[in-house]
Amino acid sequence: MIPRSTYQRVLRLVGLLTVLVIIAFLVLPAAVVTIAAFNDKPILSFPPQTWSWRWFGRALAYEDFRQGFFNGLIVTAWSSTIALCVGGMFAFVIDRYKFPLKSAIEGILISPLVIPHFTVGLGFLILAAQVGLSRGFAVVVICHVILVLPFVLRSVYVSLRNLDQSYEYAAASLGAGPLRVLTTVTLPLLLPGLVSGWLFAAILSFNEFTASLFVTSQRTQTLPVAMYNYVREFADPSMAALSVMYIVGTAALIAFANAFLGLGKVLNIEQSH
C-alpha cells in the first residue's frame, strides 16, 4: 500500500464523515417515519414507547386508501404510458431533425419544470369547468401527462443521444426499411431508456399531490390526496405505515427493473450499449 501522509489521512477521514452525514440526512425522514409507523399508540410521536404492526392493517383496510391506491394505478398507468409515447416521439423529432423554433418547442416541452404544480392543477380545474368536462379520470390523466412529460422526454432524449447512429445505418445497409430499422434496432437499443423514462413517470405520477388535489374528485382521488384528506381528520400512525409501504413498494419496483436491465441503465447514467 502507498504510504499516506497525515494530511492525506485527515482529509480522508473528513471526506468519509461528510459522506456519512449527507447519507444520514437523506435517510433521516424515511427512518423517522418508519420508526413512527410501529408505534402502538394512536398518535404520531417519536420515538414510540410501545410497538405494534396494527397501523399497517388499518392502512390496508381503510377504504379511501384502497380506492386511492387503485385510482392511482389507473392514472399512473395511463399517464406514464401516454407521456412515454408523446415524449418519446418529441425526443425523436428533437434529436433527429432540424426545424425552425426548435429551441422554443423544447422550452415549452420542459416548461412544467418551471410552472408550479398547483398552477397546472388550477389551470386544468378552470379549463375543465369551462368546457364542461366532468371531473373524471381523463382530466387527472391529462394533467399528469403534462407534469411527467419533461422527465420522459429527457430520459428518451438522453438515450437517443447515446445511441450510435451507425447501428441504424448498418441495418439500412442490410436492406431494412425505416420501419424495420425502428422496430428491430432502434427500439430494442432504446429499451432501457424507455423503461427508465416510464418508471420515472410512473413514480412521479403515483406520488403527485399538488395538482392532483385540484383535479381529482372524491371518486377519482389518488393515494396522496386520500392521505391528505385522512391527515386532516386523524393523526394516527397509519399514515406512517402507508409511507413505509410506499417506500418498500417503490424500492421493489426499482430492484425489479434493476434485475432485468441494470440500475445504471434504468437510471440512465450509463450508456445504453
Binding site: 447501428y167 445505418y169 448498418a170 445497409s173
Partner: peptide, 20 residues
Amino acid sequence: IPTYQRGIGMMFQNYALFPH
C-alpha cells in the same frame, strides 16, 4: 434510391454489430 434498396454491404469503423 434509399440505402436499403441499394444492395450495398458496409463495414463501419466501430463495426456497428447489433449488441442485442
